[in-house]
Amino acid sequence: MLKLILGNKAYSSWSMRGWLALKTSGLEFEELVVPLYDGGWDERREGDEFAPSSGKVPLLWHDDLVVWDSLAIIEYCADLTRRELFWPEDLGARAMARSMAAEMHSSFAALRRECPMNVRRDVPTPNLSRETIADINRILVLWAQARARHGSGGPFLFGAWSAADIMYAPVVTRFLTYSIPVPPFARQYMSDVLRHPHVAEWIDAAQDEPWVIEQYEGGQGTA
């Protein structure tokens, strides 16, 4: 039995990545959404179920085996199923996709801080720092390079849906939420990601959540 523990779908970009990985795998799984930072959060994250990740989400239990961190969950799902569901078959494309996924995993702190994920918001473009603008420009360059070099086989970064798209899907929602201006090719890519059935399902589910985290409503945070 696979059980995925998630944070709020409205706010938790890392949870979204882990959930998209499970959906991409096609494996059946139970999901448990845990509201972040509510009155019971501190007590809940100290329980045995959260111990392996030190209280962080997402967290995947597979019987007695546990995997935490979104990128590790992607790799575990690839091991359980077929790696071509997650990574391009071409060696050069696969190397680039892995590099882009890793950069998303470790970088773009300014964008995370100034434009926290909130798929229920739609606001005018805020005044962004030079650091955040640099993050946005770097992401757009990566998207352009992937599409130009390896995207001819479909609408996503490497043609077919892949782990790279999973890692950048929450960036797509951020760009939409904060009305970030992007070139036409990026608008088309964002539209295709948002139409992906798994992404659409996640966003739809987030609209019905009862929880509100004020720090993410005001534009501050790193969800």
Rank of each mutant, 00 (worst) to 15 (best):
V123P: 08
R147P: 07
R83F: 09
N127P: 10
M96L: 14
P88A: 03
V67L: 08
H105P: 01
L176H: 13
S152E: 15
E114Y: 07
L20G: 02
A93F: 00
V66F: 05
H150S: 11
G47S: 15
M167P: 04
L111H: 02
G218H: 15
T177P: 07
E217Y: 07
W161M: 00
R112L: 06
I139T: 01
S70G: 07
E201V: 04
H196N: 08
P184W: 09
P116K: 04
R98Y: 05
L32S: 13
I74P: 01
V123W: 10
L71D: 08
G7C: 03
V172Q: 04
K9H: 13
R113F: 10
G221R: 04
V57Y: 02
S107T: 09
V123F: 10
P183L: 09
G18R: 03
M167D: 04
S25E: 02
A144S: 15
F156V: 01
T132S: 06
D204K: 11
L85G: 04
A144D: 13
V172T: 08
V193F: 03
P124R: 06
L128T: 05
L2T: 08
A51N: 08
P116M: 05
R195G: 12
A160Y: 07
A186S: 12
Q220A: 14
S162C: 04
A160D: 12
A109C: 11
A146W: 02
N137P: 08
R130E: 15
E43R: 13
M104V: 10
A134E: 09
L128H: 05
S179Q: 09
M104N: 14
R113C: 10
V193E: 00
F156Y: 12
Y178F: 13
Y189E: 00
G55E: 07
M190L: 11
V57T: 06
S179I: 09
S107R: 11
M167W: 05
R120W: 09
L194C: 12
E28C: 10
P126W: 05
V119D: 02
V57W: 02
G221V: 07
S54I: 11
A223S: 15
G7E: 02
G219N: 04
S13D: 04
D165I: 00
G218D: 14
E214N: 10
M117K: 08
G219A: 05
Y178P: 01
A169M: 02
K9M: 12
Q145Y: 10
E209L: 01
F86W: 00
L65V: 09
H62N: 14
W19Q: 13
W161L: 00
R98S: 05
M16Q: 13
S15E: 06
V212C: 11
H105E: 06
E114D: 04
G159R: 01
W161P: 00
A169Q: 01
E28Y: 12
H150N: 09
P210G: 03
G219L: 02
A109D: 12
G154D: 00
Q188F: 11
R149T: 11
R98D: 03
V57H: 04
D204Q: 13
L20A: 01
L59C: 02
M190A: 14
A93Q: 00
E28K: 12
G18M: 00
D90K: 07
E209W: 01
A78Y: 04
K3D: 06
T125R: 15
V172L: 06
F175K: 03
P181N: 07
E114A: 06
E89L: 12
